[in-house]
Write a protein that binds this DNA or RNA. Sequence first.
DNA 1: CTGTTAGCGCATTCAT
DNA 2: ATGAATGCGCTAACAG
Lengths: 330, 330
Amino acid sequence: MNISDVAKKAGVSVATVSRVLNNSSSVTQKTVKKVQDAIDTLNYKPNIAGRNLRINKTNNILVIVNSLVNTFFSKLIKGIEDTAFEKGYNVLICTTDNSPEKMMHYLDLLGKKLADGAILLGIEADGANKARIRKISESVPLVQCSERIDDSIPYIAINSFKAMYDVTDALIKSGRKRILYISADNSLFSTEQRFDGYKTALSDNGIKFDSKLVIYGNYGYRTALQITDNFLKKKIKIDAVAAVGDRMAYGALNALKNNGFKIPEDISVFGFDNIDLCHMSSPTLSSVNQNQQIIGSKAMETLFAMINDEPYEMETITDYELIFRESTNI
Amino acid sequence: MNISDVAKKAGVSVATVSRVLNNSSSVTQKTVKKVQDAIDTLNYKPNIAGRNLRINKTNNILVIVNSLVNTFFSKLIKGIEDTAFEKGYNVLICTTDNSPEKMMHYLDLLGKKLADGAILLGIEADGANKARIRKISESVPLVQCSERIDDSIPYIAINSFKAMYDVTDALIKSGRKRILYISADNSLFSTEQRFDGYKTALSDNGIKFDSKLVIYGNYGYRTALQITDNFLKKKIKIDAVAAVGDRMAYGALNALKNNGFKIPEDISVFGFDNIDLCHMSSPTLSSVNQNQQIIGSKAMETLFAMINDEPYEMETITDYELIFRESTNI
DNA sequence: CTGTTAGCGCATTCAT
DNA sequence: ATGAATGCGCTAACAG
């Protein structure tokens, strides 16, 4: 069942059927109707593979992400998908499980024309892979979201420096001075930016940075619980905690509780990303909210513009907001 | 840059290049090397669209799901993806936002040969769409996961009846008799099954079912908080809560706390799905854990068998386990 | 406004 | 073991 069956049925040429299908150049209403009827009675669906081959375009885009099991990214993907849907694109999701090999494998699919472009979500890459990604970006539209790998590739994210600056500043303004900073043990752009934000806010408020007040986790709850507990054993006095992720903030929060501290009376706790849990837990958790839907949408729009040779921004900075809840008394 | 460029470079025919590419029939080692070298120096990638058209197969599968922003489904998708990756398939994720139109749109893509088959995740369908899905399933491999739409389509899930039976039974065995049941306001197979499990466990333990002890939400936290609060205003005595979802259990739990009840001393609370939050909250929440990774993996394996005309199971029932935490004293 | 035809890149049948 | 030739389904250039 193909286009020529429809042509035969409708008593026209395949070209005419194709024209109706793509409502390209002018076809008489009468002919359109004949063709439509044939399509309907045969229940014909155009074969995408044939079309893709001919026009050398797939209307697919790749989303490359470490893991879907992270609502930060799944919300972002929803933004991508909604916009992709509007523009007639299908979204292929590729999860890499933090494996560079898997990531490069998926990037390879772009060369095979499986998709017209790709969005890299929160991707970390070392020197060699950075170079390969840059190389690929020279021939295929690529957009990076929420983490920056290469300056030559369009980038969409919040200003992580400013966000963590604001968190730190708010904690200080509420009277806290010794803020335990829970960072992540990676080389992500956002990690570095946030750390800079923390240090700059301290310094702007005349507080000396103390490296003993910095501990490193992996975004997970258990590790954060553990490292905070270890930290508390040292009996170093603190009056607040700022974490680069909510799960880590919860790990800290529970470690603090277990050690007899009252939240927020003794110690304020501030998270990052505003996961659903933040408003369901007790105490509810103060956190930084990003609008993932918009980030995703902007990423797709940028990619779409690249694919269609339209102008686009090299850098799109989106909004964030600090949400104050019970874990802080600000 | 295509297969014939490679053939030219290697001094062989396109047929031979194709054979090397698919290591089909016998090609001399020497020829293989020549071709490989040509491929490498040209950095040639076979065009998937051309291949798909020729072999009438895409190695793509569709996953149709209401929303990715639900770790239950995203974990399931991880199971699908891992298995798909092993088998050389790419996964196209289509989110429907509970819109039947969107779902049918995506199912339509199957007819257009965008993918070789589809997995339906937790999909709800009314009479008309049920019929359309069944119709589609006659010509395209389809698998349904975690919710059942049609008996003629392979199905993978836990036994929801038995799981909720076990929850209810465990609560009763721990001395609870008046168990508030928080269900969801939908016509999903699992909803019905769980409700039956609850009622049967009551009856098997000689407890009369009381319809006043059943309230309906939408899987969300806020609604559950609200309806539980409304329920408590009626001053009907209860000593336990069983919910069909963890978020609802949390809504109930917080409503109970707000009304001065102690968990679990006054009232035990049991959730369903074991979301991450369960072990991070205080109190931690007892819940039913399903192995989504395995469900997803089995779904992909079943779909793979269908695509390749191999034998497959019409029904795969996976394990679950009750996890007892601080919200119950069992 | 419509038809004829070529060719996108590939796998495969049929020769040799 | 290899090559020549065909056609998968479609769009677009060209002709009329």
